[in-house]
Nucleic acid binder design. Structure first.
Length: 300
DNA sequence: CTCCAGGTTCCGG
DNA sequence: CCGGAACATGGA
């Protein structure tokens, strides 16, 4: 499949999707219910035979990156993030898969989100069509009905912790038809966000991730701990008393129609470059005494 | 052993 | 509207 301006590794490794694994020169994973192998070869994407169309759509090879880049704000940090992430595409994820994985993402590192995704797929997901080179089978993300019939303990056993009740509750609301993920597509951003927030474990941040990574709402701008650091460091340096509200209204205005794209570029750029910077600093400095008060268990 | 992670929800000021 | 605290688990 022709795939110009496309960095596959960056797209799969930037924290928008969590189940793809490196395999030889490429990656293996599941798109919907089909096992797929993908590999970048020059300006083209090598794809499992028969999966060309779904791959083209999933990887959003139709997104006009040049047009999108042209809408990015003109500042040095944004420019650095763009150079660092050029070719990263916001993919089109299946609705439930996206909502569910981000429900499980709360207060978790990217590596662990991936681990949870794999466990859920293997234990409760349907086997995907096709298999990888080693003959190992891959699994689709468990559907809402698949999860709805489980008990909280089944999910707790997947290291979900307090997220178990949220994932289960959301699966049940969707399986029962109380919330219709497909119907949300017809709503405007604001209504769609409100509807998603009816699901337990879905707040503004997770709803925005779903809007951006599954509903193709490019204005959605998820603010997590990393992006909050980015905004404060790059755009509110030295300012005091900057509330999350302030950050939200600034970002929706400043980053424009493709704010979500800009967000993902800044997110990945900061996460990678700041991580290295921290790793290279002297460990001794980091162990300075913290005046922080330990949690006092004065409850109950 | 401590710190912290792509948060949400509930509570008191 | 805003800041705090609780909530589980496992990398680093």
């Amino acid at each position: 499949v022709p795939a110009p301006d496309f960095d596959l590794a960056l797209t799969l490794g930037c924290g928008q999707v969590f189940h793809w694994v490196k395999a030889g020169e490429g990656f293996r994973g599941v798109i919907g219910d089909k096992a797929v192998y993908v590999e970048k070869q020059g300006g083209e994407l090598l794809v499992t035979r028969g999966c060309e169309d779904i791959a083209r759509r999933y990887f959003a090879l139709d997104h006009p990156l040049d047009e999108i880049y042209a809408t990015f704000p003109d500042d040095p940090d944004m420019a650095a993030a763009l150079e660092f992430c050029r070719g990263l595409r916001i993919i089109r994820q299946p609705l439930w898969e996206c909502v569910a994985t981000f429900i499980t993402s709360s207060m978790k590192q990217v590596a662990h989100i991936a681990q949870i995704s794999h466990t859920l797929r293997q234990r409760f997901g349907r086997q995907a069509e096709g298999e990888d080179a080693e003959g190992e089978s891959l699994f689709a993300y468990p559907s809402p009905p698949d999860l709805a019939r489980l008990e909280e303990a089944d999910l707790r056993a997947c290291a979900l912790g307090y997220r178990a009740v949220n994932l289960l509750g959301s699966a049940r609301m969707i399986a029962s038809g109380e919330v219709d993920l497909d119907a949300i597509s017809a709503l405007d951003d604001r209504e769609a966000r409100a509807m998603l927030c009816r699901l337990p474990g879905v707040g503004v941040k997770v709803a925005n991730c779903a809007l951006l990574f599954a509903y193709e709402r490019f204005k959605a701008f998820p603010i997590d701990v990393w992006i909050e650091r980015v905004l404060r460091e790059f755009y509110f340096k030295g300012k005091r008393r900057v509330t999350v509200r302030r950050l939200e209204e600034f970002s929706s205005r400043y980053f424009g129609e493709y704010g979500g794209y800009a967000q993902q570029y800044l997110f990945h750029y900061a996460r990678k470059t700041w991580k290295e910077r921290e790793a290279s600093t002297a460990p001794a400095e980091r162990r300075s005494p913290k005046p922080k008060v330990r949690k006092t268990a004065a409850k109950r």
